[in-house]
Design a protein around this nucleic acid. Structure first.
Length: 575
DNA sequence: TTGCCTTTGAAGCAT
DNA sequence: ATGCTTCAAAGGCAA
């Protein structure tokens, strides 16, 4: 029932494909997925790569024959993957926790839908599939830092080792940590130290600095770090070493904290406070979210991180921002990306994030509400955790830290620039996407997604499911033209806008923005900027409680909007 | 070496 | 209240 989609109806059209895909199709999906994925990738790639080389031949050549070192590993991964699939089919894999990581956070919430349900939603399976295979990959081990604890060691069974690019499924929760743990990362005991963003040199923060961000004592904070963080980290970044011991301990604590958050808060402290055994992980580790840019850049070198970090005396540069850079919590899609990226990467040789992200975006849309709901909830939890960890933090703190986006360029960039940038015109691949996952891509999900989250918020566990049910139908309706739902904010994004304009212009579309194949073919043209019909958020907020009615209403409105002005392309004038 | 590209979502800011 | 902007991850690529 949850998935009305089955009945989906017309709208599903797009969705249908996807859904079917996922559901039982998973197995098939895998198979087909590989194919499709490759195609998608190829398409994307070609598009991205650009016009210059478009020949399919070349593509193929690229794919297979090339035996890049990476490729090999990927290949292996694939093999494993296949095996994994088979196994899964057998059911073996399912047993393991869907989200290995979740448990940590969610432990408190055993009831939590994610975990609780033994049954994995199709998507969940997917996750596993992806994850496991990768995890298993022996070859990948090589990638990882030798120092990293052996997989077995780390987790019972969960092979933590992944391809360098692969992120542990759990990562999401840990996300904060990624960079943190980079090789250069200071030893845990140093945790209190904060690297200077610019220099990368560790410095000791003033208490005052910390206070806002670290409600807990610094040490405490370290303990807070997401347990998985370590795992994740290393996965992502081969180098940073995971303290062998560090790992486990923290988890429990973390788990409690994270999920329990408010409830457990009291407990929380005690755990945190606990002195770290080795000094590392528990206390020593800075929360993942706190990142110093410098760290990232550190060459993953070989040096043991600890040595490194400490090396630099830390000339406190405190000036500008003393505050450690606390990253934003990942949103649902980002979490999804983290998980799936590995899979996508494994499926094809493509490594470009841009291309991969496009694919992921499509897939995201193709996910069923339930599946998406999971991520939304996860994201919600993550935000919650984040807020707890960093009560004073606000997204705005990070504003301006990230280099500037193109936005800066925008002004500069004139039409000409567009052409330049146009390198990736989305439009190009739109057509190709056809197959892809998602025609639906843009449209339907948009509605859902927002909805879901809200629902989730309303009631963490239940809502998701419920919501999904309702959402699905709705989404169905919405579907198509909807692409627009997309983040129109893109308009805002300079890049998007610019490119879009360029693309549109190139394709001639400013006038016909909609040239985009709405339903099937098109996925989202990044280029065209659509106007957003209704702020979902607002709707949700207001209507959290009444799900169905609300959704419908929302849909309708969306629909209406869409139809009325389905895609209004906004060419984003560069400012 | 740095930033772009690309995706969606969340949050903040501006109007 | 609405819309726009920035940032989150990630990794190849371009300048």
């Amino acid at each position: 029932m949850p998935q009305l989609n089955g009945g989906g109806g017309d709208d599903l059209g797009a969705n249908d494909e996807m859904i079917s895909f996922k559901d039982e199709g998973e197995q098939e999906e895998k198979i087909s997925e590989n194919v499709s994925a490759e195609r998608d990738l190829d398409d994307v790639k070609s598009s991205l790569v650009n016009e210059s080389e478009s020949s399919s031949d070349s593509e193929q050549a690229e794919r297979r024959p090339q035996t890049r070192p990476d490729t090999e590993s990927y290949e292996k991964a694939r093999d494993y993957f296949s095996e994994a699939l088979r196994r899964q089919q057998d059911g073996g894999f399912f047993k393991s926790p869907h989200y290995p990581g979740y448990p940590f956070l969610m432990i408190p919430d055993l009831t939590n839908p994610y975990l609780s349900n033994g049954s994995l939603s199709p998507s969940a399976r997917t996750y596993l599939q992806m994850k496991w295979p990768l995890l298993d990959v022996p070859g990948s081990a090589g990638l990882k830092d030798s120092r990293s604890p052996t997989p077995g060691h780390l987790s019972n069974k969960v092979p933590v080792v992944q391809h360098a690019h692969h992120v542990h499924p759990l990562t999401p929760l840990i996300t904060y940590s990624n960079e943190h743990f980079s090789p250069g990362t200071p030893p845990s005991h140093l945790s209190p130290e904060i690297l200077d963003p610019k220099t990368g040199i560790p410095r000791t923060p003033h208490p005052s600095e910390l206070s806002p961000y670290y409600p807990l004592s610094p040490g405490a904070v370290g303990s807070i770090a997401h347990p998985l963080g370590w795992l994740m980290q290393q996965q992502g970044q081969p180098m940073y070493s995971i303290p062998p011991g560090g790992f486990r301990h923290p988890y429990p604590a973390l788990a409690m904290n994270a999920s329990m958050s408010s409830l457990v808060s009291s407990r929380f402290s005690p755990h945190m406070v606990t002195p770290p055994p080795h000094g590392l992980h528990q206390t020593g580790i800075p929360h993942p979210a706190i990142v110093s840019p410098a760290i990232k850049q550190e060459p993953s070198g070989d040096m043991s991180p600890s040595m490194h970090a400490r090396k630099s005396p830390v000339p406190p540069k405190k000036e500008e921002d003393k505050r450690p850079h606390i990253k934003k919590p990942l949103n649902a899609f980002m979490l999804y990306m983290k998980e799936m990226r590995a899979k996508v990467v494994a499926e094809c040789t493509l490594k470009e994030s841009a291309a991969i992200n496009q694919i992921l975006g499509r897939r995201w849309h193709s996910l069923s509400r339930e599946e998406q709901a999971k991520y939304y909830e996860l994201a919600r939890k993550e935000r919650q955790l984040h807020s707890q960890l960093y009560p004073g933090w606000s997204a705005r703190d990070n504003y301006g830290k990230r280099k500037k986006r193109k936005r800066d360029n925008k002004p500069d960039s004139k039409p000409e620039d567009f052409s330049i940038r146009s390198k990736k015109q989305c439009v190009q691949y739109l057509p190709s996407e056809k197959m892809c996952d998602s025609p639906a891509s843009s449209h339907g999900s948009m509605l859902d997604s927002p909805a879901t989250p809200s629902a989730a918020l309303a009631s963490p566990a239940a809502p998701a499911a419920t919501h999904s049910e309702q959402a699905q139908p709705l989404s169905l309706t919405t579907k198509p033209e909807g692409r627009m739902h997309h983040h129109f904010s893109l308009a805002g994004k300079a890049s998007g806008s610019t490119s879009s304009s360029s693309s549109s212009s190139s394709s001639s579309s400013s006038s016909q923005p909609i040239s985009i194949p709405i339903g099937t073919s098109g996925s989202q043209p990044t280029t065209p900027i659509l106007t957003r019909p209704i702020p979902f958020a607002s709707l949700h907020h207001s209507m959290l409680s009444p799900p169905s009615p609300f959704h419908q209403a929302a849909l309708h409105s969306h629909h209406a909007l869409f139809q009325s002005q389905p895609l209004s392309l906004v060419t984003k004038p560069t400012e």
